[in-house]
Measured scan of single mutants.
Amino acid sequence: MAASAHGSVWGPLRLGIPGLCCRRPPLGLYARMRRLPGPEVSGRSVAAASGPGAWGTDHYCLELLRKRDYEGYLCSLLLPAESRSSVFALRAFNVELAQVKDSVSEKTIGLMRMQFWKKTVEDIYCDNPPHQPVAIELWKAVKRHNLTKRWLMKIVDEREKNLDDKAYRNIKELENYAENTQSSLLYLTLEILGIKDLHADHAASHIGKAQGIVTCLRATPYHGSRRKVFLPMDICMLHGVSQEDFLRRNQDKNVRDVIYDIASQAHLHLKHARSFHKTVPVKAFPAFLQTVSLEDFLKKIQRVDFDIFHPSLQQKNTLLPLYLYIQSWRKTY
């Protein structure tokens, strides 16, 4: 089996927390979720979201995140109150960019949308954001926290390059993509939290790379249903696996070995980020709550012996909000 052949990389499970039942964490995340308004986002309300009498641009960002990046939404709820709305805006910006690729039928249209967001970032730093909910909220975040323009532009530029429907040539190319998107998002989150620390940035770099790799793995069944495969070609070739094997949902050992190798790289990034947690300011830990969902996925895929098409991998963990709150309460990542 794939797991038994390579099992030495995987460390002990961390979500089991001995003695936790003896201490009762304060009510927090679930209460916040219940208090949030929840009407559906419609095209009509989106168009009017920044106008008078609408929910408001902040509510639009929150709803977009809740629907399109639920794990990011849950993590954002546990940030300090003064930072929450800015991170909602930042993550909503990322969602807007991420959904361009799947929402257009022609690359030219995707490039036009990316050009809109490039100009939007430029206009935000000229205090002239367009009348668009996410743009307005992002402008507020930039003004409030003096966010670095370079990180925002890196996210747009990398998403634009990724409009080509090509597999990553190697794991390094996937890591570079993750660094310029997910890690950049974390650098900006640290700025919102008021953290300027080399060790925190180092952790953000590795956690962002782990996030990018896990996202690529999780999306494999969806991409396969659209006749697309984006997994690193070098690892596929190493194990003699073709793109057609993934399109046919082949579950042979060599296919699972490909998934094992890729998942192991995410695991190593996560492990390395945690190896120097004592040197990272505690104030930075809330920015890294996504490690909970990353670890949850890596454990699940290990349990199914790296069968990327196993139905259990597509099921939401209903206990994730609780695990996130516990992680926040324990002040760790």
Rank of each mutant, 00 (worst) to 15 (best):
K119Y: 04
V258S: 04
P129I: 13
R330P: 00
G51N: 13
G240E: 08
K118Y: 05
Q314D: 10
R226M: 14
G208E: 01
K209Y: 01
W329D: 02
L65M: 09
L324P: 00
A266Q: 01
G56E: 15
M112A: 11
I136V: 15
G208D: 02
H239A: 05
A287T: 05
S103F: 13
Q211K: 11
G240R: 11
I192Q: 02
H239E: 02
K101W: 12
T318N: 12
L186F: 11
R303E: 10
D201K: 05
K253T: 14
L163W: 10
F285D: 02
V100E: 06
T215V: 09
S50A: 15
S86G: 13
D305H: 07
A167M: 14
H269F: 02
L313E: 01
H206F: 05
A203H: 01
V104C: 15
P281S: 06
P52A: 14
D164N: 13
E63M: 08
F297A: 05
P232L: 01
P52W: 13
R144Q: 12
Q302K: 06
R159N: 04
N254F: 14
I213W: 02
D305V: 00
G208H: 01
F297R: 02
P133E: 08
L174W: 01
H199Y: 11
K107A: 14
K316T: 15
Q315Y: 11
K253W: 13
G51T: 15
V121G: 01
S76W: 04
E63D: 14
R68S: 11
E137A: 15
S225H: 15
G56S: 11
Y73V: 02
K316N: 09
V304L: 11
K209M: 05
Q243I: 04
T189C: 14
K253F: 14
Y168P: 14
Y60T: 06
Y260Q: 06
T120D: 02
R113A: 06
P130W: 03
V46C: 13
N146I: 05
F306Y: 07
I326K: 06
P232R: 00
Y222P: 06
F288Q: 00
W55D: 15
T181C: 12
R159F: 08
N176Y: 14
Q265R: 13
P311S: 10
Y323V: 11
L185V: 10
K118F: 03
I213F: 06
K196R: 15
A47I: 08
H267K: 07
F297W: 14
R256D: 00
A49V: 14
Q243A: 05
I301E: 01
A263M: 03
L198Y: 05
F246S: 03
N146Y: 08
T215H: 10
F88V: 14
E173W: 03
H199R: 11
D157H: 11
R169D: 10
S312W: 11
A167D: 08
E158L: 04
F88S: 08
V100G: 06
F93Y: 11
F285I: 09
V229F: 10
R144W: 04
T291Q: 02
L74M: 13
E295C: 10
K209F: 01
I155R: 01
D157M: 12
C61H: 06
P221L: 10
V134C: 14
F285S: 15
Y125T: 03
F285R: 11
A210Q: 00
N170W: 04
S45V: 04
K299E: 09
T279F: 08
G56H: 13
P321T: 05
T181Q: 03
D245I: 06
L231W: 02
R256G: 04
T181R: 02
R226S: 09
V46Y: 15
L79P: 04
R68H: 10
K119R: 11
S85A: 13
H277C: 11
R274Y: 04
V304D: 01
L324K: 03
Q265V: 12
H206T: 01
K140W: 02
I195D: 00
S105Y: 13
I109W: 07
F93P: 01
S86K: 02
T120M: 10
P286H: 08
G72T: 08
D257E: 07
G212C: 06
A48L: 15
Y73S: 00
D58I: 08
F276W: 09
W117C: 06
T279N: 12
E122H: 13
P286T: 08
M233E: 05
L64M: 09
E71F: 06
K283N: 15
M233T: 06
C216E: 10
I195H: 03
P129W: 04
L111F: 15
E96K: 10
E96F: 04
K67P: 02
D165Q: 15
F309H: 07
F306D: 01
K228T: 14
L138N: 00
D252Y: 12
A287N: 00
R226K: 14
I259W: 01
E179W: 00
H269E: 02
T332K: 12
F297K: 02
L185T: 08
G53T: 11
K283T: 14
T148Y: 03
N162W: 13
Y323P: 02
A210E: 01
S105K: 15
D164L: 15
N317A: 11
K107M: 10
P321K: 00
E158F: 09
K228R: 13
D234Y: 00
I207G: 00
V292C: 11
K172C: 10
T220W: 03
G194W: 00
E71I: 13
K253P: 14
K67N: 10
C216M: 15
A54R: 13
E71M: 08
L294W: 00
D296V: 07
R303D: 10
H199K: 10
Q243C: 04
E244N: 12
I124A: 05
R91C: 03
Y168G: 01
K101F: 14
A89Y: 01
K143G: 06
V142R: 06
A263G: 05
I235N: 05
C126M: 15
F288G: 01
T291V: 07
T148K: 11
T332H: 11
Y333D: 01
C126L: 15
A48T: 15
A263Y: 04
H145Y: 15
H239R: 11
T148F: 01
C75N: 09
Y177L: 03
V255S: 10
D307N: 08
L217A: 02
D102H: 05
I207E: 00
R303T: 12
R68F: 14
Q265L: 14
H267N: 07
G53C: 07
A210D: 02
L324V: 08
T148S: 09
A204T: 01
R330S: 11
K196W: 04
P321G: 10
V134K: 01
S45L: 07
D164C: 10
D127A: 07
Q99H: 14
V87E: 03
V46D: 04
D127E: 09
N180S: 10
I235E: 06
P281N: 08
K107C: 11
I326L: 14
Q99N: 14
S85G: 10
L198W: 06
P221S: 11
A273I: 00
K67W: 07
L231D: 00
L193K: 02
H239K: 07
R218P: 02
P286M: 08
L289H: 06
K228F: 13
K161M: 10
Q211L: 15
W329A: 09
S242W: 03
V100Y: 06
V304M: 06
N128I: 13
N94R: 02
L322Q: 03
K196N: 07
P311V: 07
H239I: 00
E106R: 08
L322A: 13
I259T: 09
L90F: 03
Y125L: 04
K161L: 12
R218M: 11
L231V: 12
C216Y: 04
L231Q: 00
I136N: 08
L298Y: 03
F93M: 06
S183W: 00
L62A: 11
L270S: 03
W151L: 07
Y70Q: 08
Q211Y: 15
P321D: 01
L193E: 00
S85M: 11
R91G: 07
L97C: 09
Q99W: 12
I195Y: 02
D165Y: 07
K331T: 12
E191D: 06
K253Q: 15
H310E: 06
K299F: 09
Q290G: 10
N146Q: 14
R303P: 01
L79W: 14
M114L: 11
E191N: 07
T291F: 01
Y260R: 07
